[in-house]
Amino acid sequence: MNELTTLERRGMAAISTPGGKMLIVAADQRNGMKAVMHDAPNGPSSITTEQLSDAKADLVRFLGNAAPAILLDPEVALPRVADEGVLARDTALVVGLDASGFDTVDGLQYTNFVAGMTPRKVRELGGDVAKMLWYVRPDRQDAQSRVADEIRELVTACTAEGLLLIVEILVYRLDGETEAEYAAAFPSLVIESARLAVDCGSKVLKLQYPGSAEASALVTEAAAGVPWAVLSAGVDHETFIKQVGIAVANGAGGAMAGRSLWKDSLAVSAEVREQLLTTRALPRLQELEAVVDGLLVAS
């Protein structure tokens, strides 16, 4: 197990429920968030940065503040929600370092940092914890690969800053790989990505649901004591809470939910947005917390 420093333990506590499980509302999406703001008069492409910033502020105000932590981006949401006092004092701030999109090199996908972002900048923005996304194909990348070097470098830099880093891993289908081939490989890709990330020093993982109770147990084994949280990956709420229940029962340490909570609750209209977030998204968050803490079994 990759041991946490005292400061990293404090960060871990800040993003966890009273029951000790991670629970983070993910709201660092940019283009993806525009895409679900269904009432834009001329479509998502017409939504301005100011409108998106307003939506993110309301998402914090009416949903994120009810969670232990919220994940936000440093391009649109920050530093506004901190400077204007929108973010509640008891809600931890996780700052995403990854820029939208990715580069492709020799058939492999690589994310980029938001320009100017460093562990120190996370602190300057008021962040308690950092998050970085990497795309990984462990059947094509090993401990000597570029992605492994990037993970090791950022883990080291964050530790030096006293900042807990959540390492998010997404596996993906290669060009020329059929859907059936990818589906068959998917559980092992998630499992082996967890193993690679931990070998590179990762102390907290954010991973896709690997598909079953058996695969979840194998992820836990591969993580070797490093806590891992399930990401929602755009599935609906009902599907996600079932996945989370299975994963937590087999060793997962919590959940990080984005679109499964709010994808049908965002709007350009502030009035509609508040109504949907409070009557639709917030009850979902409360249900998810109960499942994460083992107080409710998802049916």
Rank of each mutant, 00 (worst) to 15 (best):
S269P: 06
C200Q: 02
I166K: 03
S46Y: 00
M33C: 12
M1P: 03
A257D: 05
E271D: 15
G251K: 15
V122W: 02
E153P: 13
T17Q: 07
T178M: 07
V226Y: 11
Y182Q: 00
E161Y: 12
W228T: 13
V268H: 09
V235H: 11
E179C: 03
E287G: 06
T278D: 08
E3D: 11
D142G: 07
Q144K: 11
P283T: 03
A14Q: 11
D236S: 10
A185P: 09
G162C: 01
W134R: 05
A222V: 07
V297Y: 02
G96W: 04
N112K: 10
A115Y: 01
R30D: 15
G85P: 08
Y182E: 00
L196E: 15
V25M: 04
Y110V: 01
T48G: 14
G107V: 14
E153I: 10
V248A: 04
H237V: 03
Q208E: 02
R259Q: 15
P68E: 00
A194S: 03
L231S: 02
V297F: 11
V204A: 12
L163M: 05
G11S: 00
E192I: 14
A148N: 09
S212L: 11
V60G: 03
T278F: 01
G176V: 04
A66F: 12
L170E: 11
V292R: 02
A99Q: 12
R123C: 04
A257R: 03
R9I: 05
V171D: 14
L218I: 06
R137G: 04
V171H: 00
D83C: 07
A222G: 09
T156D: 15
S188K: 00
A180C: 08
E179Q: 09
T220V: 03
A88N: 12
R80I: 07
T239D: 13
G258F: 10
L277F: 08
A229S: 04
D106A: 14
N42E: 09
T104Q: 12
S265V: 07
L164C: 10
A14M: 11
L133V: 14
L277I: 04
A27F: 08
A247C: 02
E75L: 13
T156N: 10
D293G: 06
S216V: 08
L295M: 06
G116I: 11
L71V: 03
P283M: 04
A40Q: 15
K56L: 02
G253S: 13
W262P: 07
K121F: 08
G43V: 07
F240Y: 01
V198S: 09
A82S: 14
V291K: 05
A252Q: 12
S46M: 02
S145Y: 02
A213F: 14
R9S: 15
I246Q: 05
A185Q: 13
V297P: 03
Y172Q: 12
P18S: 02
S216P: 09
A298N: 13
Q144P: 15
V129N: 13
R30P: 15
A77W: 14
A88P: 10
E8F: 11
A35W: 12
I169K: 03
A233F: 08
G43E: 03
E50M: 11
